[in-house]
Design a protein around this nucleic acid. Structure first.
Lengths: 210, 210
DNA sequence: CATAACTTGCACAGATGTGTGCAGGATACG
DNA sequence: CGTATCCTGCACACATCTGTGCAAGTTATG
């Protein structure tokens, strides 16, 4: 009558599926179940033993991805809005593996709704950050706060989704792009990052994979 | 034996299909043939009378879209790199209807290759522009020329694809975003656009649809 | 070692999409 | 008007993908 506890290989396989799905869906949000299962070294049939649905699998991915997103957003407490944005970008980058899926799925018609609501906390953080930055004069005011927030979000998504996470200066690129969008001149960005080397290794003129 | 010239309604329908495909694929690059045909007020079967293939249809769209792209790139001759970039962005925006498809399809796995080669001239223009801007000190030099060019391209694509082309200040937004990415401070951008009102109607703090 | 837990392959139903053949009806055009 | 041109609906074959049932294997674990 007493049910046995789940087998070790089973939980490993479940995790393996999630990993495989992460990397497969980050590239192509419409990757088939078969591709995901195979790339996890399992059969399609087995995947359905672990997840009821394609939807279920994806929701779990989005769920853990966005949780990290939101946790990071709350962890950034710099008084200086510019520093806060920089740190936010840098930390998000560290989680690239988990974050890319969400970024890719957020564009997929079928999941926009779900991701949008899961990312609400992050959105609120960014909105507040933008308002703060505009008030103290460190962010641009030629755009409305909502517009700027949206732009920042869009650019962040693009950079995360469309740059090789493994390349050396990628985090640097992301941070610089976002601060530029916020309105800073590139020299200001450069000085800021030089003054706070803890945010990102301040490499000059870094390379990137083709 | 002498073949009659094509009927008027036929050529109209062909054009209608292209229009329908343009707007349908701009939203969803994987829109079905049926959806496209129906939204052109025709049957699926008829569409296949005008185009052999889904591929053929798409290639024609990409072809005319990228031709406009490239033509614009060559038409920009400002000595000042900042102005050149601004004007390039503004003109591309005017062609948004034709350009959005290309931007959307460029992300679609199945057509990256084709769009990439069709956009080679534009890429070259941007690359040259970036080099020029970096040399005369108006663009950022904390990023490699190729990296900056790539970033500009990515951001342009995003802005074109993900903002309501109909909204009033959209062109403004696009231009400002690109100049910011190039390294200018937002005040510098603001001054530049104020000094050259021909580029884009210089509206302050414009709105955007939700 | 006994057995519950897990994996697998195969067959199936169903959905959605592409591309084609054909017959019949509408219509532009010479 | 007559006819070539065009549109349409329907019926196919084919492909890809999802999700399920089942019987037969393998393996972790108590």
């Amino acid at each position: 009558m007493t049910t046995r506890s789940p087998r070790r290989d089973s939980v490993e396989n479940r995790a393996g599926i999630l990993d495989a799905a992460r990397s497969a869906l980050a590239t192509d949000p419409r990757a088939s179940i078969d591709v995901i299962a195979r790339s996890a070294g399992l059969s399609r049939r087995t995947l359905y033993g672990h997840f009821d649905d394609r939807e279920t699998l994806i929701r779990e991915l989005i769920s853990v991805g966005t949780q990290r997103f939101n946790a990071i957003a709350e962890s950034v407490g710099d008084a200086d809005a510019r520093l806060a944005l920089a740190r936010l970008a840098a930390r998000l980058w560290q989680e690239a593996a988990h974050v890319q899926v969400a970024a890719a799925l957020a564009l997929d018609e079928a999941h926009v709704e779900h991701t949008a609501e899961a990312l609400a906390p992050l959105r609120r953080s960014v909105a507040a950050l933008v308002r703060r930055g505009q008030e103290d004069g460190s962010f641009r005011t030629d755009l409305t706060a909502p517009t700027l927030a949206r732009l920042i979000e869009e650019v962040a998504r693009t950079v995360v989704a469309r740059t090789d996470a493994a390349s050396s200066g990628a985090a640097n690129l992301a941070v610089r792009a976002l601060l530029s969008i916020a309105g800073l001149s590139w020299r200001e960005v450069d000085d800021l990052l030089a003054a706070h080397p803890d945010i990102v290794e301040p490499i000059r003129a870094e390379e990137e994979r083709a």
